[in-house]
Each structure stands twice: as C-alpha cells, then as structure tokens.
Design a protein around this nucleic acid. Structure first.
Length: 230
DNA sequence: GTATGGATGTTCT
DNA sequence: GAACATCCATACT
C-alpha cells in the first residue's frame, strides 16, 4: 500500500515508550518510524518488518555469551546493534530487554518516507521497492554503518525512532528468514499487505495457493506477546 | 513469480 | 577455516 508521509515529524520515542520484552518490542516497532538526520538531509522510513532474537535463543548472536562483536545486544533497550554480514552489509538491530541481557530486534524492511533521492543515490537505483526492502538494503539506504553500533537511539542523537505517521495496519507473524538455528520459531513480524516487506510471498500474506496459508498468520489484535508463537 | 550460485569480510573455533 | 540474521544477476516455470 502506498502512503504519503505527513508534514512534520512524529514525536521521538523515549526509552520508557519501548516495551522491555523482546517480542513485544518487535511487534511495537511495526508501523513506527526510523529517522536518520544526515548532513545532506533527513532520511526516514516506516518500519514494516522485524525479527525478534530472544534471550536464550540459539539464533541470537548473544547466545554464545558476550563478545566484542555482540556486546551491544547486552545494552539497555533502545540501543543500536549493528554488525557486518556476508562481507558487505551492515545489519541494524535494536537492543531489547534490560542491561546485561543479550537480545534484540533485527530491522528487516522500511517503507521509504523522507529523503528518497538520498536513498536512491546511496542504493544506486531509483526503484522505490528496492530501496529498503531487506536488512542490508535498509542500512545502506539509511546511511547506517558499523560506526552506529552501540549508539543510543533514545538520547536525542541523529539516528532515532519516532511514532507512527499513519495508523498501524494488521501485523502478521511467520518464521524468520535466512537462519538455520531455531528456524521453526515464529518470530518474524510484518505489516500485512505492505509491498515493502521482504522475503518470499508465501511468508508475507500474499501466497497464491491455499497450501501456503499456514506459513504465516495474522496476530489477534489483543493477543499477548507470549501467545504469538506456535 | 521462484531457485540457484558467487562475492564479500569479520568473528570465533 | 568455517560460518554467516544478504544481495544481485541469471536462469528457469
């Protein structure tokens, strides 16, 4: 679904606005705004896809214990964990839980809102759909690099989270993408029907055959985070 | 629309 | 030296 962004930025999210629980935060972030104020101007986008990496989760980088690479996951919620993936890409996460507990949310896709020309230049394409669909593209379009690892997104800095630019649509849940450990857990969240969500259609609520219906499901509006898996 | 394979560098064994 | 929360081009149905 296409959206025009409204004039004026939504309010900054403060740390106390963020749920502490990792699954709750992953769901909360869908529909919120990621903003980066660069010297060249502002780039921003609507978060449409996230993945939760929980405490004690074998797929979470923090599972092996705190190392130099993953230490940002152990920061208080609202800090960035940015790491280098597959030799080319910086992947952006938001640390969750309380300080000392290693867990976080991978931001997988954005619907571009502001600074589209800047994103196009960084990405080397003018295809709106390809600017920030996928975690590597997202960081590339937003100008997020390893230098942003451990940054606090809630301290008034240039990289920050903001509220919704329009009401949150329904959220779907599926298995996570591109992992081998704990691959059956349903910890990927996305805005149902949004074309800027990455991954195969059968995981995004757009599967054509009825057999694919079981690959994802809508989350009941009032469900508790603990009940969305399974 | 989906599937496959190569490229890339850091981290940890 | 293997693993890796990916992307892109290419070759299919």
């Amino acid at each position: 679904m296409q959206r025009r962004h409204e004039s004026g930025a939504p309010a900054r999210l403060r740390r106390k606005d963020l749920p502490t629980d990792t699954v709750a935060l992953a769901r909360f972030l869908i529909g919120k705004t990621l903003i980066h104020d660069l010297p060249e101007g502002r780039v921003s986008g609507r978060i449409v896809e996230t993945e939760a990496y929980l405490p004690g989760d074998p797929a979470c980088h923090a599972f092996i214990g705190e190392t130099r690479r993953n230490r940002s996951l152990f920061l208080e919620r609202g800090h960035a964990y940015v790491y280098f993936s597959y030799g080319c890409w910086a992947l952006m996460n938001v640390a969750s839980e309380t300080a000392g507990i290693g867990a976080g949310i991978l931001l997988r896709a954005l619907e571009p809102l502001e600074g589209v020309p800047l994103m196009e230049r960084r990405r080397g394409t003018t295809r709106l759909l390809d600017l920030a669909r996928g975690p590597g593209r997202l960081s590339n379009a937003m100008g997020i690099t390893l230098a942003h690892d451990a940054r606090d997104l809630c301290n008034g800095g240039p990289l920050w989270l903001a509220g919704e630019t329009c009401p949150q649509a329904k959220i779907g849940v599926s298995t996570r993408i591109g992992i081998t450990k704990a691959a059956d857990r349903r910890l990927r969240f996305f805005e149902i029907g949004n074309r800027f969500v990455s991954g195969p259609a059968h995981l995004n609520g757009r599967g054509s055959s009825p057999a694919n219906r079981s690959d994802w499901r809508a989350i009941p509006v009032d469900s508790q985070p603990a009940s969305v898996e399974g």
